[in-house]
Design a binder for these strands. Structure first.
Length: 524
RNA sequence: GGCCCCUUAGUCUAGUGGUUAGGACGCUUGGUUCUCAGCCAAGAAUCAGGGGUUCGACUCCCCUAGGGGCUACCA
C-alpha cells in the first residue's frame, strides 16, 4: 500500500488487451497509452494481448489494424502475439486449455456449475421479467442439478455453458488506484457465464485467467469495466489467485457526452494518421484526456510524458474529445519540430503528391548537413534555363520555404495544395482574388512595371526585391499594398501567402517575371 | 427497473476549509503587418440545485437533478 519495494518495481507488468473487432479508436489508444506510459515510467513490461474470444466478430483485419495503429503511435510492446514472450500465447483463442483447466477446477470445487438452459428460453424469461418490472437476471435453474442428471445430459451431448456459483450473500471489495475503495453486494451479482457453449471463455473469465498467468501487476482499463470488476474479483478469489492492482480510467466521450463511437466522426487512430497529425501530438493530446500534471503545462514531448506520468493524477471525470484542442496541440508540435525533420517529412508529403520535381531526391538515408539549412542568405535564381538543380540546393530551398511559412502549416497534408505554385504552373487560382486585384488595366500596368523592375535587378535577394517594389510604389505614388496584392495573386493564385518578397525569391526571377507578365497581359 | 460511477466556464483541467477560483483550447476586441497565420495585449464566460456540518465552504456529509456505465453464451 505504501511505496513499492524495489522487488515490486521490477515486476510491474501491464497490458493492453483489445478485441480485434474494429479499428484502434481514440479510447483504446488512450488506454494503451496510459499502460505504456506506466510501464515505461516504472521500467516495467508492456504486454499486448488480443482478446478474440468472440469468434464471430473478430477479424484478421482488425488485428492488423490495431497493431498498425499502435506502431504509428509509437507504443511498442515487450511481449505480444507477433513478438512472443515467456507467458504466451498472447491471443486468447490459442489459450483454450488454460481456461478449461481453471473452469474444471472451479466445477470440482463446487464453485461453478454446468447450465443446460438454452439461450432462447433464457431470453424469453428475461423478457417476461422485464415486463413484470423484475430484474432480468438468470434464475439459476441449473444451479443445483442432480449429479446424475448432469451426467446424463452431458452424455447426451446437450450443449451447455459453465456458470459461476455466485454467493447469495456477503460482499466483494477491491481498491482502485484512481477511485479508491469499492464494495459490491453479492446479491446484486448473478451466476454469470464462464465458458460459453462453443467452449470459449467469456471476457470476465478469460481476463482473470490471463492476467494471472501473464503476471499482470496492474490492470489499467476504461471505467466501463468497473461493474465487471466485482465478478472478476470473485473469480480471482475462487481460484485462489492474487488480485492485481486496478486503475480505472474515465471514459472519452463525444460532443454529445455519450461514449465516443463512429457516430461522432473521427474516432479511428487511422483517421488521424491519414490526416497527417503527428503521432507525438496525438499522444500528447490523448495523455491530457484524463490526466494532467499541474493544470498548467500541456505540451509534452514523448519522453517528458513518460517522466511525468502518474496514475495518481488520473482524473475521475469523463472527458469530451475536442478536435480544436487536438489541432492546437498538433500545431504546437509542428512549431517545435526541428526544421530538418520538418523538411524531411514535408519532402515525403510533397513527393507522394507529385509536387516535387523528378530530379529532387535528397538521400535521406544519410544524415542531412545542418549547414544546408542554416542562415537566411538569399536563394539564387534557381529557374535559370538548363541549369542542373542540385539536390542539396532544392532541399535547402524547401527548408527555407517551410521556415517562411512557419505556423501557417497546420497539417503536413495541406502542403501539396499550399505549395504547389512553387513547383508547378498548374496551381489553383482563386477567381475572386484575380478579379479583385487584376481586373483593372491600371493595376495590370503597374504589374508590368514591376516585372520590368525585377528583370533589371542586379541581385535577386529578398532585400533588393523589397526595395525595388517599394521604390516603384513611391514613384507611382501608391501604397505598396497596391502592388503587393496583385503581385501575390499573380504569383500564387491566392490572396493570402507568407511574405511576398520571399515568395518572389523562392520562385526566382524568370518564373516571377513570367507569371507577372502573364497575369498583366492586356485584355481584349 | 436494479447496481455502480461522474458533476469547476462551450471543452480539457488546477484546486483538497479562508484564493480577486489559476492555466489551456475556442470565442470577442485592440496592437504588429503587404494578406493570412503567428505573436503581443485586453476581455466575456465556471464551482448543477437544495439542505446540512462549520466562525467560514468549490473543497466534508446527505438529498435531488443531469450525464455515463454494467445488468449478454460482446469485450
Amino acid at each position: 500500500m505504501k511505496a513499492d519495494t524495489q522487488q515490486e518495481q521490477d515486476s510491474i507488468r501491464v497490458r493492453f488487451a483489445p478485441s480485434p473487432t474494429g479499428h484502434l479508436h481514440v479510447g483504446g489508444a488512450r488506454t494503451a497509452l496510459y499502460n505504456w506510459l506506466y510501464a515505461r515510467k516504472t521500467g516495467g513490461k508492456f504486454i499486448l494481448r488480443i482478446e478474440d474470444t468472440d469468434a464471430r466478430r473478430s477479424t484478421r483485419d482488425s488485428y492488423e489494424g490495431i497493431l498498425r495503429g499502435m506502431s504509428w503511435l509509437g507504443l511498442d510492446w515487450d511481449e505480444g502475439p507477433d513478438k512472443g514472450g515467456d507467458y504466451g500465447p498472447y491471443v486468447q483463442s490459442a489459450r483454450g486449455v488454460l481456461y478449461h483447466a481453471d473452469a474444471q477446477k472451479l466445477i470440482d470445487e463446487g464453485k461453478a456449475y454446468r447450465c443446460f438452459c438454452n439461450p432462447e428460453e433464457l431470453e424469453a424469461k428475461k423478457e417476461e421479467a422485464r415486463l413484470n418490472k423484475l430484474d432480468p437476471v438468470y434464475d439459476r435453474a441449473c444451479r443445483d442439478l442432480e449429479p446424475g442428471e448432469i451426467e446424463r445430459r452431458l452424455a447426451a451431448g446437450e450443449p451447455h455453458v459453465i456458470r459461476f456459483r455466485m454467493p447469495l450473500e456477503g460482499e466483494v471489495r477491491f481498491d482502485d488506484i484512481v477511485r479508491g475503495r469499492f464494495t459490491f453486494s453479492n446479491a446484486d451479482l448473478d451466476d454469470f457465464v464462464l465458458i460459453k457453449s462453443d467452449g470459449r471463455p467469456t471476457y470476465n473469465f478469460a481476463v482473470v485467467v490471463d492476467d494471472t498467468r501473464m503476471r499482470i501487476s496492474h490492470v489499467i482499463r476504461g471505467d466501463d469495466h468497473i461493474s465487471n470488476t466485482p465478478r472478476q474479483v470473485h473469480i480471482y478469489l475462487a481460484l485462489g489467485y492474487r488480485l492485481p492492482k486496478f486503475a480505472h480510467l474515465p471514459m472519452i466521450l463525444g460532443g454529445d457526452r455519450t461514449r465516443l463511437s463512429k457516430r461522432h466522426g473521427a474516432v479511428s487512430i487511422d483517421h488521424y494518421a491519414e490526416k497527417s497529425y503527428l503521432p507525438d501530438a496525438m499522444i500528447n493530446y490523448l495523455a491530457l484526456l484524463g490526466w494532467s500534471l499541474d493544470g498548467k503545462r500541456e505540451f509534452f514531448e514523448r519522453q517528458a510524458l513518460i517522466e511525468n506520468f502518474s496514475l495518481k493524477r488520473v482524473s475521475k471525470n469523463p472527458a469530451v474529445f475536442d478536435n480544436d484542442k487536438m489541432e492546437h496541440i498538433n500545431a504546437e508540435h509542428l512549431k517545435k519540430m526541428p526544421l530538418i525533420r520538418k523538411t524531411i517529412l514535408a519532402y515525403h508529403t510533397l513527393e507522394s503528391a507529385g509536387c516535387i520535381p523528378a530530379d529532387f531526391s535528397v538521400d535521406l538515408s544519410k544524415p542531412v548537413d545542418l549547414k544546408l539549412i542554416g542562415g537566411t542568405e538569399p536563394v539564387e535564381d534557381t529557374a535559370a534555363e538548363g541549369e542542373k538543380i542540385f539536390n542539396e540546393r532544392e532541399f535547402r530551398r524547401l527548408a527555407m520555404i517551410l521556415n517562411v511559412y512557419g505556423n501557417r502549416i497546420k497539417l503536413l497534408k495541406d502542403l501539396p495544395s499550399m505549395l504547389r505554385y512553387l513547383y508547378k504552373d498548374d496551381f489553383p487560382r482563386d477567381e475572386h482574388a484575380c478579379h479583385t486585384w487584376l481586373k483593372e488595366e491600371r493595376a495590370r500596368e503597374r504589374i508590368r512595371l514591376l516585372a520590368d523592375g525585377l528583370e533589371e535587378l542586379k541581385y535577386f535577394d529578398v532585400a533588393t526585391v523589397e526595395e525595388a517594389l517599394r521604390s516603384l510604389a513611391d514613384r507611382l505614388e501608391i501604397d505598396a499594398g497596391e502592388l503587393i496584392h496583385p503581385c501575390r495573386v499573380a504569383l500564387t493564385g491566392q490572396s493570402v501567402s507568407p511574405d511576398i518578397f520571399w515568395i518572389i525569391v523562392f520562385l526566382g526571377r524568370a518564373k516571377s517575371v513570367e507569371r507577372l507578365r502573364a497575369a498583366a497581359a492586356p485584355r481584349g
